[in-house]
């Protein structure tokens, strides 16, 4: 199980995956918005999306778990 965490404070701009989706390493899972930038969050490894713990518009903290991969 791999937890994908936010690298910095921001809001969730777009969620681009859903539970059950198969992802390859480097696939975009969601896009954060922070400091005037769209910041893509990518899969650190290949796997299946087990959980998406945030929704669009939600403010996330640095280190907060966004997605759980299996």
């Amino acid at each position: 199980m791999t937890e994908v965490k936010a690298e910095l404070v921001g809001s969730v701009w777009k969620v681009k995956t859903a539970p059950g989706a198969q992802v390859a390493e480097e696939d975009e899972l969601l896009i954060l918005e922070s400091m005037k930038m769209e910041i893509p969050v990518t899969a650190p490894c290949a796997g299946t999306v087990k959980e998406v713990r945030v929704k669009e518009g939600e403010v996330v903290k640095e280190g907060q778990v966004l997605v759980v991969l299996e």
């Binding site: 910095l8 400091m35 930038m37 910041i39």
Partner: peptide, 10 residues
């Protein structure tokens, strides 16, 4: 580097 943290300085 805009690819990482939007290129913000920390």
């Amino acid at each position: 580097q805009p690819l990482q943290k939007g290129g913000v300085l920390d």
